[in-house]
């Protein structure tokens, strides 16, 4: 695959340099400068909200650092968790003296590194809580939802936790709202084409031109089925049907994210959204503030995901609160 890069070894650092140049509200911090923080000073007494993960998913993870969202973010090499040091740097940057919420996807390396970084932070007197994004319903059965991966739906938890932290809530309250947002969010994706890690000899996975993989993860993890490509409406019907099977009791309003995995254009996303809106309406669900676009990608991977966050009054209010980062502005 052709890429507009220099030395693959410099891919992440050059990307981060460009991101911060383009968005002066962000700065690189830490000894190896693999954490991104807000350029404004952390407000004393405010709970910090940090995330982290591998590169290759912009706007996730670093792109959501901003007012009303994340205070800092640790970033690893492409599809590789952030280092323990980067996690420590992100926690330190987000420490305003009221504790730090570590909110990231349910992946092995990320978990281990944030866990070790949190142990080091505790030695420095910084209290942390951890909430894991587990919204990908294709990655494990409902009975084992704690094993599910975190994908695009994680941004709803960012938004809810970031908004509550801005209001001055306690660490436990911020962690609780993040967990509630995770618990009420479901995502499923479809993949059309692969991506390639810079410097790798070949693509991350292979898929025939006329095939689609239903439920594939954002690193090419296997999905539920792979068949010949089908009309968009059929795919959306199956995606929405699977998500609605897990609808919390009493939910009547949903936030919707139709997300491009990288190379799928807005036109196709709107075709997907059109059908999703029809199906959600038919199910008696009111859509609130739909998001359509590339919010969580896998470089040049083709495909899309649909996330639904089943709202209650508290989450809906927090999702509507003002926020601003390089890729998402509310209010």
């Amino acid at each position: 695959m052709k890429k507009l890069i220099n030395d693959p070894a410099n891919y992440v650092d050059e990307m981060l340099d460009g991101l911060c140049l383009a968005h002066p509200g962000l700065v690189r911090v830490g000894d190896d400068r693999r954490a991104i923080a807000r350029s404004t000073k952390m407000r004393r007494g405010k709970v910090g909200v940090v995330s982290g993960g591998g590169s290759g998913h912009l706007p996730l993870f670093t792109g959501y650092v901003g007012k009303g969202l994340l205070d800092a973010c640790a970033i690893g090499n492409v599809f590789e968790g952030p280092t323990i040091n980067s996690c420590q740097d992100a926690i330190a940057a987000a420490n305003g003296g009221a504790g730090v919420l570590c909110l990231f996807g349910n992946y092995g390396g990320d978990k281990m590194n944030f866990e070790m970084a949190s142990e080091f932070a505790a030695m420095d007197g910084v209290e942390t809580r951890t909430v894991l994004g587990t919204d990908d319903i294709a990655s494990a059965k409902r009975e084992e939802s704690q094993k599910r991966r975190g994908v695009a739906g994680l941004i709803f938890a960012y938004k809810a936790a970031g908004a509550l932290a801005e209001q001055g809530a306690s660490l436990d309250e911020v962690a609780a709202i993040a967990q509630k947002a995770v618990d009420r969010t479901r995502t499923i994706g479809v993949a059309l084409s692969s991506c390639q890690i810079p410097g790798a000899a070949g693509p991350n996975f292979t898929i025939a031109d006329d095939e689609i993989e239903f439920g594939m993860g954002i690193h090419g993890e296997p999905g539920i089925w792979r068949h010949k490509i089908r009309p968009a409406d059929e795919l959306v019907d199956e995606m929405i049907s699977l998500i609605l099977a897990e609808k919390p009791e009493g939910a009547s309003r949903v936030a919707v994210l139709v997300n491009s995995l990288g190379s799928t254009p807005f036109e196709e996303l709107f075709i997907l959204y059109r059908r999703a809106a029809q199906q959600l309406g038919a199910a008696g669900l009111a859509i609130v503030n739909p998001l359509i676009g590339p919010y969580v990608t896998s470089m040049e991977m083709g495909g899309a995901s649909i996330s639904l966050c089943f709202l209650d009054d508290e989450i809906e209010t927090l999702l509507a609160a003002p926020a601003e980062c390089p890729f998402w502005k509310v209010g």
Binding site: E80, G81, T83, I84, G109, D110, N113
Partner: peptide, 15 residues
């Protein structure tokens, strides 16, 4: 090592 890798295997080696 803690500054070099964030992979699961790498972190186990650091451990």
């Amino acid at each position: 090592g803690a500054a070099s890798t964030g992979s699961s295997l790498g972190t186990l080696i650091i451990t």
